[in-house]
Amino acid sequence: MNFRKILVPLVGIVLLGVAYRSYGWQGVALVGGAIVMFLLLHFNRAMKVLQRAAERPVGYVDSAVMLNAKLKPGSTLMHVVAMTRALGEPKSQEGSQPELYRWTDNGNSWVDATFVGGKLKEWALTRPDGPAEDTPTGPSTLAR
């Protein structure tokens, strides 16, 4: 169970109670204003991330290799969307766990990210097969 969903509102209620006990209704107004400001800041950040993501194609990232280097386990989906500035292309069934998303770059490299409960669990970078190193890419003989 995610205790953060219970703990954060509980801390808010305790702060309101302590403010009322110490300063009366003026304290409740001050703490209530601080809680509303905290909620508005988080809402504003989420809207800004989604606004930036709406301007780009779904599943696109500038560089899959750089995204692979920046990802850390435990990152939230919102944090990854903020990094890529694009929504991931869903590869799993809607509403199922774990959630699988893909971000692809112009070089056809892609990163598949697996989220469990909204947190990044694992990811894998896939790069397209390039030309073999031992095959010549230019003319086989030099013109004299």
Rank of each mutant, 00 (worst) to 15 (best):
E99F: 02
M1Y: 03
F38Y: 13
A143N: 10
G32K: 01
L142Y: 10
R52H: 10
V61C: 08
K48W: 09
E99A: 14
V31N: 03
V80G: 08
K5E: 05
Y23P: 00
F43D: 13
A64V: 05
N68K: 04
E99N: 06
M37E: 09
T126I: 04
N2P: 02
A34W: 08
D105H: 08
T104W: 05
P73F: 02
A19G: 12
G27V: 06
P73V: 10
A132H: 07
G117H: 02
G117R: 03
R127T: 14
K48L: 15
G17M: 10
V116Q: 10
R85G: 12
L16M: 06
T76F: 00
V80A: 09
L40D: 06
H42G: 10
L125Q: 03
A132K: 10
M37I: 13
M1V: 01
F3A: 15
T135N: 10
P98W: 06
Y60V: 06
V58C: 06
L30I: 11
M47F: 00
V61M: 04
V28E: 00
G74I: 09
N2A: 12
M47K: 00
R102Y: 13
I6A: 13
R4G: 03
R4L: 08
T137M: 07
Y23M: 04
K121T: 06
L71Q: 04
G32H: 01
G88A: 15
A46S: 14
E55A: 11
I13M: 14
